[in-house]
C-alpha cells in the first residue's frame, strides 16, 4: 500500500495539532482560560457556583428553581411565587429609580435591606461582604457572574454586563453604606457552647427548631419544624442577631409558613422569666457554634 495514503493525513493532522498547541500555550502564558469572558484572575462563573453552594452560604437561604431546599429567602430561579428567575426580575425591580439589572443584584448583596421583597423579612440578610460570611469583592463578582449565566446554563457573561457589575460594585464597596443593621447596645459576652447545648435541650428549643445532625432527648409533640431550621445558623448570623432572636423574638420574624401567630407576633415564646443570664449567654454561644457543612 502506498505509505503516503496514511502519511499525508497524519502529517496534516500533526501540523494542525502543532498550531492548536501553540495557541493553547500562548493563551496559558497569559493566564487566560480557553474560551470564556476575559474576567481577570479567578473570577469566573464556575468559581461563583462553588461559592454559591459553598462558602458563600447562599444556598442556606436561597434555592435556584428546583435546586436547593431553602425557603427562607426568595427563590432565585422560578417557582410558584416567581415566574421569572432573578436575572430577569432584577431588571424591573428598581427600574423606576434608574437601577439596572446589574446594579440591583449588586445592591441586594451589599445592602440587602435597601429593598426587601414583599413577604420576606427585613434584616434577615446581612451584607455579604461583612462578617460572618465576609466574601471578598472578587468572590461576590464570581457569584453574580454565576447567576447571570443563568445559573450555569450559559457559558459566559458578555463583557459589558460584567463591566456594569464591576462598576456597581465599586460604588457599593467604596461607599459607606448605611444599613439598618442591628447595632447591639452591648456586646454579647462569650459563653460556653457545650453548656449551651444542654440549655437548648432543657428549654425544649428542639421541640420547635430542628438542627441537622443533633440528637436531643424527647421533647413532646412537636419535633422541630415549627420554627426556622437552625442548622448551621452560626455561620449565617452574627452573635448579636442570635441574642436578639432569643431575647426579643418579635424584632425580626423570619418569613415562612407558620412562624407568625394569629396576633401577628412570633409564635416563639419569651424566656425572660425562665432563663438565667448565664444560660442565655451559653445558649447564644451554642447557637453561634453551629456551622453549616460545606
Amino acid at each position: 500500500m502506498n505509505p503516503h495514503v496514511i502519511g499525508i493525513p497524519a502529517f496534516g493532522l500533526a501540523v494542525l495539532l502543532v498550531f492548536a498547541f501553540f495557541g493553547i500555550w500562548v493563551t496559558d502564558l497569559q493566564g487566560q482560560k480557553s474560551g470564556g469572558s476575559q474576567l481577570s484572575g479567578d473570577i469566573s462563573a464556575e468559581a461563583g457556583r462553588e461559592i454559591f453552594w459553598g462558602k458563600g452560604k447562599c444556598y442556606t437561604c436561597h434555592s435556584i428553581g428546583g435546586e436547593g431546599s431553602a425557603q427562607r429567602c426568595p427563590n432565585l430561579g422560578t417557582n410558584d411565587q416567581f415566574s421569572d428567575p432573578i436575572w430577569v426580575r432584577a431588571a424591573v425591580r428598581k427600574q423606576s429609580e434608574g437601577y439596572s439589572r446589574e446594579r440591583y443584584i449588586v445592591e441586594s448583596i451589599y445592602d440587602p435591606n435597601a429593598y426587601v421583597v414583599e413577604g420576606f423579612s427585613k434584616g434577615l440578610m446581612k451584607p455579604i461582604n461583612k462578617p460572618p460570611i465576609a466574601l471578598t469583592d472578587d468572590e461576590i463578582t464570581s457569584v453574580i457572574a454565576y447567576l447571570l449565566t443563568e445559573a450555569g446554563a450559559n457559558d459566559a457573561v458578555p463583557e459589558d454586563v460584567m463591566a456594569a457589575v464591576l462598576d456597581a460594585q465599586r460604588d457599593f464597596a467604596s461607599a459607606k453604606v448605611a444599613t439598618e443593621e442591628f447595632v447591639p447596645g452591648m456586646p454579647v459576652p462569650e459563653g460556653d457552647a457545650e453548656e449551651g447545648f444542654y440549655v437548648f435541650e432543657e428549654m425544649k428549643c428542639h421541640s420547635c427548631h430542628k438542627i441537622d445532625g443533633m440528637e436531643f432527648e424527647a421533647a413532646g409533640d412537636a419535633e422541630g419544624g415549627v420554627g426556622p431550621d437552625l442548622t448551621g445558623i452560626g455561620d449565617i448570623q452574627t452573635l448579636e442577631y442570635l441574642a436578639e432572636s432569643v431575647m426579643d423574638p418579635n424584632a425580626i420574624i423570619v418569613a415562612g409558613d407558620g412562624f407568625k401567630g394569629d396576633d401577628g407576633n412570633s409564635k416563639m415564646p419569651e424566656f425572660h422569666d425562665t432563663m438565667t443570664l448565664r444560660e442565655f449567654i451559653d445558649l447564644v454561644a451554642f447557637l453561634s457554634s453551629l456551622k453549616a457543612e460545606g
Binding site: 497569559q30 493566564g31 487566560q32 481577570s40 484572575g41
Partner: peptide, 9 residues
C-alpha cells in the same frame, strides 16, 4: 484597574 492579561497583581 488593569485587565487580567496585564497582570494587575
Amino acid at each position: 484597574g488593569l485587565p487580567g492579561v496585564a497582570a494587575p497583581w
